[in-house]
Design a protein around this nucleic acid. Structure first.
Length: 476
RNA sequence: GCCCCCAUCGUCUAGCGGCCCAGGACGCUGCCCUUUCAAGGCGGUAACGGGGAUUCGAAUUCCCCUGGGGGCACCA
């Protein structure tokens, strides 16, 4: 390859990162790492009313957690406004951009009128050819002034997208667009074009929802500099289960929610990499290094993809099982600390991870099953549906009595704890069938971590105590 | 309304003219394993949206239709 690759991930800090934006970040990251290039993190906070500092730090936290590192300092567009203004004024002088004094209300009214006539929305060029005198008058009226880019009157805009191939649109369908607001702040188009130019971005990899805006950015870029623009690659969108575009208020899966629910970065990266891309050999469970080696823009698909939570679950389970015990512990610790606070017991947690690793799909689900270990006897509760199952169990009082007696004296190993032979002696042909009542008494749920190991972990006193409590409750 | 993008199992995808009466994965489902529930193992179910054209031959090329998605902001 020729010039070193330099890409950027440029989110707007208007909310938490969701799977769509993270997939974009991931593809940029994989592309940069694959080509030994650089990835810049640029925060597009030009909309000062919607941007919030906590989202900026939140975005960085999430990216770091996912292992998607970036090169150099984070660039904040809000700190470069002066530069954008200067460039815009220069464009005004060159007549590529003009002053527009239309108010939002006037534009909205004319759009409504256009709609009534069966035409679509879009700026009508009202202020396109204002004379110096017109402008002076309007300025004197203290009308708001925006700066609008003048799009070509005829011909077509065309560029070759790395994924889509040639994309062509008639200029007549693209209206003049605002690049500087009436309060003097820049818009996306301006800041984007200038920064891509100055940062030396070679490839722009982003969502397909920005495909149409590319023509405008490219025209603006051409007015700004004769330098060749970056190559563009528009990724198919990730859709919600309902097949609509993911948005903050609609079905978007926030990364922080996944993190809190116990999904692993390894699994999220792996799953997201497979949404719109697949390696030649068809393997699906891939380490990050393999992802970097195999990733290629050529293999990116063209069609939008629905986010499938069930497959993510499967993938997460795959990764939980691949973790070493130490890694699993490190991944679970933050969740467990938040969940159990001072009641967290490292020894018990390790025990739970040992018996739970092979059978869990999320860390959250694993901890759900481990809750019984950390509950004080006073606030240990048996789920209502599980208790119902207990009361429906035949001769359950007898079972409890026998198990209690057994636990008081047996050797304290999982094998010795196993009460089945004793239940067989009591006349139960399939002792396994009545065991769920014991699960409920000890674990608070009739289905959970393997019983004998669980009792062993819980300890003799606590186990006996819980069974006695359940036995007493039967009488009530 | 106009513009753009897209179109293989329910979902993610392989397929880039004959190897495909279409392969893999998730899901669903049957069986096995089994102390519950899972996890795991082995099977099964299930798709080329429709119509033309090109060709000896089309999931693969072209056109139309239909369908889905996106865009048309002083959001990005």
């Amino acid at each position: 390859m020729t010039a070193p690759v330099r890409v950027r991930f440029s989110p707007a800090p208007t909310g938490m990162l969701h799977v769509g934006s993270v997939r974009t970040a991931l593809f940029n990251w994989l592309f940069a790492r694959h080509h030994h290039g650089e990835l810049v993190l640029r925060i597009e906070d030009t909309d000062t009313s919607r941007s919030r500092p906590e989202w900026i730090t939140g975005i960085q936290d999430t990216l770091r957690w996912l292992g998607l590192d970036w090169d150099g300092n984070v660039v904040l567009q809000s700190q470069r406004f002066a530069e954008y203004r200067a460039a815009a004024e220069q464009l005004v002088e060159e007549r590529a951009v003009y002053e527009c004094f239309c108010t939002p209300e006037e534009i909205a009214a004319r759009n409504d009128a256009a709609k009534a006539e069966g035409r679509g929305p879009g700026y009508d060029g009202h202020c396109r050819d204002l004379t110096a005198e017109d402008r002076a008058t309007r300025a004197a009226e203290r009308r708001p002034r925006t700066l609008r880019f003048r799009t070509p009157d005829d011909g077509a805009s065309s560029f070759v997208d790395l994924i889509r191939g040639e994309v062509r649109v008639e200029w007549s369908t693209i209206s003049d667009f605002v690049i500087v607001r009436s309060d003097g702040t820049p818009l996306f188009f301006l800041a984007n074009a200038i920064d891509d130019l100055e940062m030396g971005i070679t490839h722009v990899i982003r969502g397909d929802d920005l495909l149409d805006s590319t023509h405008r950015v490219l025209a603006l870029r051409a007015a700004l500099s004769p330098e060749a623009p970056p190559a563009y690659a528009h990724l198919p969108l990730i859709l919600g289960p309902d097949r609509a575009k993911l948005s903050k208020r609609h079905g978007a899966v926030a990364l922080e929610e996944l993190r809190e629910a116990g999904y692993l970065p390894e699994a999220i990266r792996n799953y997201l990499a497979l949404l719109g891309w697949s390696p030649e050999d068809g393997r699906e469970v891939l380490r990050i290094q393999e992802l970097i080696e195999l990733f290629d823009l050529d293999a990116v698909t063209h069609a939008n993809a629905a986010f499938d939570h069930a497959k993510l679950d499967w993938m997460n389970g795959e990764w939980i099982r691949r973790l070493t015990r130490t890694e699993l512990e490190a991944a679970t610790m933050p969740l467990a600390e938040r969940r159990y606070g001072p009641r967290l017991d490292l020894g018990l947690l390790r025990g739970a991870l040992e018996i739970g690793q092979e059978r869990s799909t999320t860390l959250g689900a694993l901890l759900d099953q481990a809750d019984f270990l950390f509950a004080a006897d006073d606030d240990f509760v048996i789920a209502p549906e599980s208790w119902a199952k207990v009361t429906r169990t035949e001769r359950v009082a007898e079972i409890f009595d026998a198990v209690i007696a057994h636990l008081r004296t047996c050797d304290w190993t999982p094998d010795a704890i196993d009460p089945r032979s004793l239940l067989t002696d009591l006349g139960f042909e399939k002792p396994g069938k009545v065991l769920p009542s014991v699960y409920a008494a000890v674990e608070g749920r009739h289905a959970g971590l393997p019983l004998f190991e669980s009792i062993h972990l819980l300890g003799r006193d606590r186990a006996v105590h819980r069974l006695e409590a359940a036995r007493a409750r039967l009488e009530a």
